[in-house]
Amino acid sequence: MRNEIRRLREERSLSQAALGTELGVSRQTVNSLETGRYDPSLPLAFTVARYFGLSIEEIFHVDA
């Protein structure tokens, strides 16, 4: 699953560690999310979407 987390994070000039703190996860988890190696749970996806003020569909895209 692709996502826009890296772009959104960089637009806000946040480090992975800072975003991780905001989302309540580790820096490694943010890195894994950005590289697509880890797909978040639904609660974490909602947390990410809420943090960026977007919908889940605007951040996460199913690979086609």
Binding site: Q28, T29, S32, Y38, P40
Partner: peptide, 22 residues
């Protein structure tokens, strides 16, 4: 040193997030 620890350390420390648990 919360930013410098790895997955195993977070689990052992009882501070695992959802990826660590997975």
């Amino acid at each position: 040193a919360v930013d410098r620890i790895g997955t195993a350390t977070r689990i052992a420390a009882g501070r695992a997030d959802e990826r660590d648990l997975r």
